[in-house]
Amino acid sequence: MTAIITIALILLISTIAILRFYPPLGRKPSKARVESSTAFKDGSFKNIEEINMGTSFSSTVGMLKDFMKKDTERKPAEAIPMVQIKPGTHIHETAITWFGHSATLLELEGKRLLLDPMFGKAPTPFPWLSGNRFSKGLPFSTEDLLPIDAILFSHDHYDHLDYGTIKLLKEYIPQFFVPIGVGSHLERWGVESGRITEADWWDELDWKGLKLAFTPSRHFSGRSVNDRNATLWGSWCIIGKSKKVFYSGDGGYGTHFKKIGENYGPFDLTIMECGQYDPRWKDVHMMPEETAQAHLDVGGDLMLPVHWGAFVLSFHSWTDPIERVSASAQQLNIPLLTPKIGERLVVEKGERGTPYWWEA
């Protein structure tokens, strides 16, 4: 009995120590930091429309069964192709470079913005215990990626906000734009508060000739056991003098897309979540057909599907997102961008990417 109690105490102390001192978990923001938000109610952030997380007993049992199935199509048999990027510079073109999952470099009116740069090997606080990303690496060195004028984050989940990436880039990034509360993580990781701007839903920020509007999504947040919905989540409208871009962040389909389109659309380019979905949690991750409809709701022209091509976070095949959204885009006459990882596309030149590269 004494041995059991001792082991239990060791486990308890270890767990408390990890939660308190392990940096990748970030830091839960204080209530004073977040309570001014219009979305903060009864001690946590809430969605505009209620969500079903698919956590019923039957859904949980079904997910466990799916998890145990051997499905070789959930990840590619070989490393997926990449295009090595060229050293960056400020050019007055509208260009997009996708790095897998949601990590994207947007060049707009002379500014270079990183959206949800997750450059780690796995979206977990313990990446050394996990597998590698589908590309087995990234198509750049830090020097090639620079200069970067700002980073925009949509929420604090591990597949979007990565501790290792922040440690790698923080000394080179002059400005971080984040949802309310997410700055607490960055501050713990050594980013000065003066370089962090937090935004609430429908906030508009004027920055170096661009308007950055933080808009709702239908999702959730959290990095640990005690911080569910302690920080806000959302989407970004990036508006220049001649071009407008919408980045959906993560989330389920909802009425907010039409509202965003009414307020800020139409958009020359949308960067839309498309991947890691399942009917059981469609309220927080759109199905591909809903991705196409959401693009139309906001008034999009070109569409870049993201949130696929890097990690196994659901049960669908790794190509299911791009195959299904491609079919929907064709039916709805949506011009689709399909770049390889690292392939830079210039909007003004009509570049669309490499069709069906995932089939090679």
Rank of each mutant, 00 (worst) to 15 (best):
M63E: 14
L145C: 02
T94P: 05
R133Q: 14
S135K: 00
G110N: 05
R74E: 02
L108Q: 02
I80G: 06
K69A: 13
L64R: 12
S58C: 10
T60M: 04
I80V: 14
E50F: 12
L106M: 11
S130P: 07
E109W: 08
G110P: 03
K136E: 13
Q84C: 13
L105M: 11
D71P: 02
F57A: 14
T124R: 11
L129W: 15
F57W: 15
L145F: 05
T72R: 15
G100E: 11
E73Y: 09
S135Q: 03
I91H: 14
H90D: 09
E49C: 04
E49N: 03
G54N: 08
P139Y: 02
D116V: 13
L108S: 02
K136W: 07
K69S: 15
L64S: 11
F119A: 12
F126C: 05
G137C: 04
K65C: 08
T89L: 05
M82K: 15
P76N: 15
M82G: 13
I148M: 09
A103R: 06
E107H: 04
E107C: 05
T94S: 12
L64V: 10
F99D: 03
A95G: 02
K65E: 08
R112E: 01
I85G: 08
W128D: 04
M82C: 14
F67A: 11
K65G: 12
S59C: 05
G88T: 00
N52E: 02
L138V: 13
G62V: 02
T104S: 00
G62I: 01
K70E: 15
L64Q: 12
G120L: 05
L129Q: 08
S58Q: 13
P127K: 00
D144M: 11
R112T: 00
T94F: 07
L145P: 00
K136M: 15
V61M: 12
E109N: 05
L146G: 04
E107Y: 00
K69P: 09
E107N: 15
L105S: 02
R112G: 01
M118W: 05
F99S: 01
D66M: 13
M118S: 11
F99R: 02
F119D: 08
G120W: 01
L64Y: 09
L115E: 07
G88W: 03
E109S: 10
G110S: 06
E107D: 11
T104E: 03
F57K: 14
E93M: 08
H90G: 05
E78I: 13
T124K: 10
I91C: 08
A95I: 04
R133N: 10
A122M: 05
D116E: 11
L146S: 08
G120Q: 07
R112A: 01
E143M: 09
E78S: 15
